[in-house]
Design a protein around this nucleic acid. Structure first.
Lengths: 198, 198
DNA sequence: CGGGTTTTAGATAGATCAGTACAAAACTTG
DNA sequence: CAAGTTTTGTACTGATCTATCTAAAACCCG
């Protein structure tokens, strides 16, 4: 065998996630990534091959963690569906106010990446599409349960409502990045929830 | 006097708007801007001083045009409020499907800029905030009219509903950039409109 | 038509970019 | 402890970035 690494790959990845999250892909230099991770250039390139590959790995990790968290909230079968959806919105809102830089939310790396580079990077677009499907499937699941339980209107099919929820969450994240305060986001969430029952 | 310009400043600005719209601020090089506008570097720098100033002017122009268009739709006092709001959503949706590159929507420059650079550029953030206020004021106006006319629920104040509309539009634009088709966006819009009446 | 002024083209500057080369350091295993 | 292998720090490469410099071209007005 040989010399072992002195750093933890997952921790480095987490640091890279944060760097890309705050500044976006283009504005984050490889030097920024060295500073953020505490690694030298050699270690970064030896481990992750390129800035682009480090980004896709960081994005994949972000999506895994975030989507798993949201799905977990929605799978609490013992709670009423509307309560679970409210809990989902609360997770989103709390996140927007926990993760801030210079008084502003950093938003959501998924949304940020969709906006910044999905249009001109098919590989990234495919990663985002896969994550979107996973989230939509989860949303659909609860909504169907809610419809069976009579909590959610059956005037619209579950897929449409799932996509509505997804769009509202995206809009809330953009609003947060635009400076919206907590009361605004909570009100947006409330209004969206009302829409589901009618 | 002296040698006159051989180009139209507004047309150059429109070309710059499109360049920034498609690729974002960071990924658009000054060379890209020369190609897009058809101007030489000297003309660009002579006229707009810097990439950053060209961007702020392009953004301001975009916001003027877009917001004016949306406000105009909402000010058709002879139509019912819900019809006007539906027309607003239609304008948004049509825009998402008119402005595409390689099969994908380029979204909205306001949203794109909020996500990409508002957090680390106070000057840009201020421009965006001003435009947001203008749009919210317009949204509030119609919503109040709708509430007086009994078309829109008074369970929520007009400002909250205005911000809800704004968030949903932002979410629709992100969804479009993420690949959503027309039926999805129309369904999201329908669902949002339903929320206003209950 | 010529003096004064501005625009324009093209070369250039200096910084920074992503990525590589290379050798020293650090560790495992025999 | 020594051979073999990988990591790591640093210097470097060539490309590209924003911005400027210089001088010729183009135009208006007297």
């Amino acid at each position: 065998m040989a010399r072992p690494r002195t750093f933890d790959e997952e921790r480095a990845l987490d640091a890279a996630v944060w760097a890309f999250w705050v500044k976006g892909y283009e504005a984050t230099s490889t030097q920024d990534l060295c500073s953020a991770t505490g690694l030298g250039r050699s270690s970064i390139y030896n481990t992750f091959s390129s800035k682009h590959e480090l980004f896709t790995r960081a994005l994949a990790r972000y999506m895994d963690v975030m989507t798993a968290g949201q799905v977990a909230v929605l799978e609490q079968a013992e709670r009423p569906v509307m309560e679970r959806l409210r809990a989902l919105f609360d997770v989103v809102i709390d996140g927007e106010f926990e993760r801030r830089v210079e008084g502003r939310s950093v938003g959501c790396l998924t949304v940020n990446t969709t906006v910044e580079i999905a249009g001109r990077d098919p590989e990234v677009a495919a990663l985002l599409a896969r994550d979107l499907e996973r989230r939509l499937a989860s949303f659909r699941g609860v909504i169907e349960a809610g419809q069976r339980a009579g909590e959610i209107s059956t005037a619209r099919d579950a897929d449409s409502l799932a996509r509505f929820i997804n769009a509202v969450i995206g809009g809330m994240r953009v609003s947060a990045q635009g400076g919206a305060d907590r009361a605004v986001l909570e009100s947006v969430a409330d209004t969206a929830l009302v829409a589901l029952s009618c």
